[in-house]
């Protein structure tokens, strides 16, 4: 658990972070979002003491971070950043093993851990272990960056726009991978982004920042259904809000499970685990108001009409 209590960071007279209070529970995926320069990175770096806070308290597992040696603190917190910061003179395997080596694990244990992580992040060990960072694509490099952050199995993970420099397709892939990992690993994550779509997709809780302060925090659907002010609303994309909200809801939660008669099966289908946003798009595309819902093996499991999509008992 990470707690920030009335934390302030001053650079000279300027307050980069101002009276900031936040609690991130164990296993929670918390995303700080806001425009550039609003203090997201500063907040993140105060948690692992790359920047010392000026006022207030920061606690990890109920202990003041100032009671730890900064190096020891950082070795138990995973840290991944936008430009990856991979060590260009070390191989992929050596990069991933950085923190375990600092913690003086023995060699076989480090080797086994590196293998495990590469597999976890979909990096073929034989192919990639001995490559240098300059021989990786942006997406691969960022996978290595995430693997390195996870290497010593920290409970806490700090990520500063880790996918910010990737092309949209690679970014979406890595976002999904991160969600898959998180459902398995249950780390306590503080993730920084300026991309609200990324925040909506990843977060258990979104913290919207502006000028060093928290403007609003809540679940993605909290924010979408009740943005606190015009600033949050504009971050959420103004008129696109409806679509973004539809992007958070699965077809399976709105579909009717009564199957149409086989002869009436609509040729237009949507997967049950797609979002309502996709379903709406398909309806517009096929100019129809009912879709047949299929499961992964393409077997019809129900149907979704425009009416189902618009009204619902739940959420």
């Amino acid at each position: 658990m990470i707690e920030l209590r009335n934390v302030t960071k001053r650079f000279g007279d300027e307050r980069a972070v101002n009276d900031f209070s936040l609690t991130v529970e164990d296993g929670e995926f918390c995303v700080l979002v806001g425009t550039s320069g609003c203090g997201k990175s500063t907040t993140l770096r105060m948690i692992n003491r790359l920047i010392e806070h000026s006022d207030g308290q920061i606690l990890i597992d109920r202990q003041q971070i100032r009671s730890f040696n900064p190096q020891a603190l950082r070795r138990r917190i995973g840290y991944a950043i936008q430009s990856t910061g991979l060590f260009p003179h070390w191989s992929v395997a050596r990069n991933i093993g950085t923190v375990p080596r600092l913690l003086k694990w023995d060699k076989p244990r480090i080797e086994a851990r590196v293998r495990e992580l590469m597999e976890l992040l979909g990096l073929d060990h034989d192919n990639f272990a001995e490559r240098m960072p300059s021989q990786l694509s942006g997406g691969q490099a960022q996978r290595v960056g995430v693997a390195r952050a996870l290497a010593a199995d920290p409970d806490t993970l700090l990520m500063d726009e880790p996918f910010g420099a990737l092309d949209p397709i690679t970014r979406v892939n890595l976002q999904e991978e991160l969600l898959r990992l998180q459902s398995r690993l249950k780390k306590t994550i503080v993730f920084v982004t300026h991309d609200m779509d990324e925040a909506l997709k990843l977060a258990d809780r979104i913290v919207v920042m502006d000028a060093g302060r928290i403007v609003q925090q809540g679940t993605p659907s909290d924010l979408l259904s009740a943005p606190a002010n015009a600033f949050v609303e504009s971050l959420l994309g103004g008129a696109d809000r409806g679509l973004k909200q539809a992007g958070l809801i699965r077809v399976s939660s709105r579909m009717r499970t009564d199957l149409p008669a086989p002869q009436a099966v609509d040729p237009a289908t949507v997967a049950a685990d797609d979002t309502l946003r996709v379903a709406l798009s398909l309806m517009l595309w096929h100019r129809c108001d009912t879709l047949t819902v299929v499961d992964r093996s393409n077997t019809p499991v129900g149907q979704l009409s425009l009416r189902d999509l618009l009204h619902s008992g739940s959420s």
């Binding site: 990856t84 991979l86 600092l102």
Partner: peptide, 22 residues
């Protein structure tokens, strides 16, 4: 690259380790 140094410190290297290893 300053981000490499930031990563080195962020991983928990001491100043001496950053100097000699990076």
């Amino acid at each position: 690259d300053p981000t490499v140094l930031e990563a080195a410190r962020g991983m928990g290297m001491s100043n001496r380790q950053v100097l000699w290893q990076v």
